[in-house]
Each structure stands twice: as C-alpha cells, then as structure tokens.
C-alpha cells in the first residue's frame, strides 16, 4: 500500500500535475507540504494519514469543468470521506448535472414581502453558511414608502416587521444570463451552468474577489475566515457546486439551492417564505408559475441598463 507522495509520484500525470507537484516543492505550498509530511509520517494514525493523502489529492485536482466523469466521482467521494475522517459524520456530496430544457428563473413579489427574514434563516441553514461571521446570501432591504434608494434602505433592521410606512425588497444572486462576475474571473473558477445557475468551484477559486467587484448587485460573499457549522446543524445533503463546505479565502454565493433545484424541489427561501412572495420555476416551461408571472404582471429588474440580463424579476400585486 503506497501512501502520499509515493502514490502521487507513481501515478501517470499530465503536464499540469507535474508542474504543480514540482512547483509545490519549490514554492513550498504550505498546505500541501504539510499534507505530505503527515501522509508519510509513520507515527501518524492511519486516519490522519488518509486524510492528509486525500487533502493532497484535492489540492491538485482539476477545475471541475475539466474533470472527466471518473475524476468527478473521485472528487465527490473524496469530500465525503474527508468529512467522515475529520468530523465523524456522514455527508452526501452530489454532482447532479443540469436537467435538459430547464432554465431557472425567479420572481419576487414586493407587495408581499414583510421582512420576516424566514428566507434568510432558511438559506443559512440549507447552505451551511458560516455562523460566526453572520454570512447571508439574501439581503432584505427595508425601504421607506415612496423611496427606492438602496443607500437609504436598511438591511440590518431589528424591530417588529412590517414597520409602518415601509416596504421590503430582497436581493441575492440574480443569476444573470450575461454575468459580469464570470467574465472577470482570472482562473475561470466561476461560470454559468446550462440551466442558468452561476456557480463557483470553491477548490479552484483563488480568492482575488474580482467577481465581487464586478457584480453590480452585491451578491457574492467572501470567506474571511474558515466557515464553521456545528456538526449537528450541518445539512448533509450537499452538492459540489452548491452547499458543500467552503474554505477560508474563497468566494461563495446563492446557487438557487442547486442541491434542491436539480432535484425538482424549490430553493429553501421559496419554501420558507410565509407570505408566498417568492416564485421559482423553469423559464422554458410555458405552463410554469414563473412564466405566468412574467406574462401577467408588470415586472422589473434591477439595473437593467447594465445589460446583465438577470433571471430575477420583481413585481407588485
């Protein structure tokens, strides 16, 4: 049984892997080096050595879009096993592919939102967002009636809602059909899937935050620290491009709950909203609710003049 560096070096490798392996030795990439050190340490426990070996493999895995089917399966199993080794619990990491003839769209009823924040709470739990830093994909903006200026709106209100004379409007990732965040990523760690969901490969992201600067909607979040979720609160039903645990120094965002939506379910925010202000569905299905809203309501989008073509519409009763 070969472990760690021996195993890696004994495998046939492409040019990139060879360069990174060599580069690791030269540049002394701390994480990988530590993994190797532990993986070949005869005094470390077998579990610890296995975890180190898996971390090493994960460190040098391909961009998700360039992985072969086998590599994808390996990457998914690796994440499941790593979690088991480190935390004891079992998780399921899916790599469910987009469904054909599906393009996801979302509508938000401004008349119905009352600022209860049930959506934010459900989103945090569903997507395993860091608890300590208060990370949240969704923001609910409390606007004064008659005003529509986000700089004057509050997204940190903490009083009984709905407040007299105010209305509420939620923002999150709009999954633009022409996403500026994707254009600026220097390493192609973020892209739009065929079903319209803009995703991030957290293992490929280098944390430069160009995408955050490019997004006109403040939809992306950065992990300034390693996100932590108590094991008991962890949602074990995960997707590689969705709610699997992120690491320090990478960007994350709303994925329309890809782990749910590709399973035919609605995103957690849609399910949690007590007033029915959130509508989700397939834009390519003429019978869907979202299409009915687009056809029968006066809808608008934010900053339409930018040409980002968000798949997220607002309407009023």
């Amino acid at each position: 049984m070969k472990n760690g560096l021996v195993q890696i070096l004994s495998q046939p490798m492409d040019r990139r892997t060879a360069i990174t392996v060599a580069g690791c030795a030269v540049a002394g990439a701390a994480t990988a080096a530590a993994s190797v050190a532990n993986a070949i340490n005869p005094f470390a426990s077998p579990e610890s050595r296995e975890a180190s070996r898996l971390e090493w493999q994960r460190y040098f895995q391909e961009n998700y879009r360039l992985m072969s089917e086998e590599e994808k399966t390996e990457a998914l199993l690796r994440l499941e096993r790593l979690h088991q080794l480190k935390h004891g619990g079992r998780i399921s990491v899916s790599g469910a592919e987009p469904i054909e003839k599906v393009l996801f769209g979302y509508a938000f009823n401004v008349s119905k939102c009352r600022g209860y924040l049930e959506c934010v709470s459900a989103c945090i739990r569903e997507n395993n967002q860091d608890r300590a830093s208060g990370m949240a994909y969704i923001r609910i903006h409390e606007h004064r009636n008659g005003e529509f200026d986000f700089s004057k709106a509050s997204d940190t209100f903490d009083h009984p809602v709905p407040a007299e004379g105010h209305f509420y409007l939620g923002t999150q990732c709009f999954h633009c059909q022409n996403p500026p965040c994707v254009d600026v990523c220097p390493v192609k760690a973020t892209w739009m899937e065929p079903d319209g969901i803009v995703v991030v490969d957290y293992d490929w992201c280098i944390g430069c935050r160009y995408c955050m600067a490019a997004c006109p909607y403040d939809a992306r979040r950065f992990n300034w620290q390693a996100p932590e979720v108590p094991e008991a609160d962890l949602n074990p039903n995960q997707h590689y491009l969705g709610n699997r645990m992120r690491q320090k120094g990478v960007v994350e965002k709303c994925t329309f709950c890809i782990q749910r939506s590709r399973d035919g379910r609605n995103p957690a925010c849609v399910e949690a909203c007590p007033t029915g202000a959130r509508i989700f569905g397939n834009l390519l299905d003429p019978q869907s609710e979202i299409r009915w809203v687009l056809a029968n309501k006066k809808v608008f989008r934010l900053k339409e003049d930018l040409g980002t073509d968000p798949k997220f519409w607002y309407f009023m009763d």
Binding site: Y116, L117, G134, V161, R221, W224
Partner: peptide, 17 residues
C-alpha cells in the same frame, strides 16, 4: 391579515459579511 412580529433572525446575523 399577517401580523407584525420580530424577524426570524437578529440584526447581527442578518448584517452579512
């Protein structure tokens, strides 16, 4: 009608990053 009540989360949690 839907009543007036406190949001499901506190201000700190909703404040974002």
């Amino acid at each position: 009608g839907f009543g007036r009540r406190l949001p499901a989360m506190t201000r700190k949690e909703a404040a974002g990053e």
